[in-house]
């Protein structure tokens, strides 16, 4: 089989290309600009895509963690306020009673002296 030489190939291509109508450059660009002008391609008209940068995510996480920590800390802080006795009624006989808040242990103590339960008034019913 005889290989086709390169000059032959060039001649063949040139002969075929002659039949193809190639648009002139000026006409091509005129058409391009006309079509481009018909279609809106402004970036402002495009739908906005919300993208959070990594630093914003990290900041949001940090703020949430701090807020959560503060909420839990304030809620469970024993220094916020002490127990408050709103009413007290001792139905058993006794000699004395004192109520005290211990500043060190933050405990509330109701101490009844010489209590005797045999003659308690209330029957609990």
């Amino acid at each position: 089989m005889n290989p086709i030489s390169w000059p032959d190939i060039e001649m063949e291509l040139a002969a075929r290309q002659a039949d193809v109508k190639v648009a002139e450059a000026d006409r091509f660009w005129d058409e391009f600009r006309f079509r481009a002008g018909e279609t809106h391609q402004d970036a402002a008209d495009a739908l906005p895509i919300l993208v959070f940068p990594a630093w914003a995510k990290a900041a949001a996480c940090l703020v949430a963690i701090i807020a959560l920590t503060l909420m839990v800390t304030i809620r469970s802080d024993p220094m916020v306020a002490g127990n408050e006795i709103q009413s007290l009624d001792i139905t058993a006989s006794h000699s004395s009673v004192f109520v005290v808040n211990d500043d060190e242990t933050m405990a509330t103590i109701v101490w009844v002296s010489d209590m005797e339960i045999n003659d308690a008034k209330g029957d609990g019913t």
Binding site: N83, E84, S87, T105
Partner: peptide, 22 residues
């Protein structure tokens, strides 16, 4: 069945309420 003490208290978290002596 005998009630010997009755009270209303606002309890705060982590603060003991100690009642004595029975």
């Amino acid at each position: 069945k005998r009630r010997i003490m009755q009270m209303t208290v606002s309890l705060k978290e982590g603060r003991p309420l100690i009642l004595g002596e029975f």
